[in-house]
């Protein structure tokens, strides 16, 4: 019985060590691309600050990786999530979207923020600073609504 337990633990350890060698994506790029939302519209500094703090980790080409991202299988899940979220909305590539898609995205952004669907609760668990205060929400809401009405 003891033998089985020992072997299982050894096996588990081998798996845990083994998966550390899985290659990872790194969602970071040098400089800010021309298509970043800040160059598409005149994005005020305070709006940009909220976006960068609360949205850019998953919705841009620059993720600020936390220490635990170096550990598998955390990184695998994180990579997958970031790939999917960027496909949905990528502020670094906002300028390459069609006008129609920009409008759709802005409508969706204000909706998600008003209904407190974003940032995701699972993300906020480890990123308390990303939580949107009432003022933050108003800042984003006003900004996106103003552009939509233009």
């Amino acid at each position: 019985m003891k033998k089985i337990l020992k072997r299982t633990l050894v096996g588990l350890l081998v798996v845990l060590v083994g998966i550390q060698f899985i290659p990872t994506d790194t969602n970071q790029q040098d400089g800010i691309p021309e298509t970043d939302i800040r160059y598409v519209y005149g994005v005020p500094e305070k709006v940009l600050k909220v976006l960068e703090t609360s949205c850019y980790d998953c919705h841009s080409n620059n993720t600020n990786y936390p220490w635990y991202s170096k550990v598998q299988p955390v990184r695998l899940l994180m990579d997958k999530h970031i790939r999917e979220r960027k496909k949905e909305l990528n502020f670094s590539e906002f300028g390459s979207y069609s006008e129609r898609r920009k409008r759709n995205k802005m409508r969706a952004i204000t909706e998600q923020i008003e209904k407190s669907k974003m940032p995701l609760p699972s993300y906020l668990l480890m990123h308390e600073e990303a939580k949107l205060s009432k003022t933050d929400k108003e800042i984003l809401d006003n900004f996106f609504n103003d552009i939509r009405k233009e």
Partner: peptide
């Protein structure tokens, strides 16, 4: 014998995790 089997299994598991991460597209 058993340990060997377990290690083979572990390798298979990490292997399939790796494949899962790449096989999406």
């Amino acid at each position: 014998m058993n340990i060997k089997r377990i290690s083979v299994f572990s390798l298979a598991v990490s292997g399939s995790l790796f494949l899962a991460s790449c096989g999406n597209s």
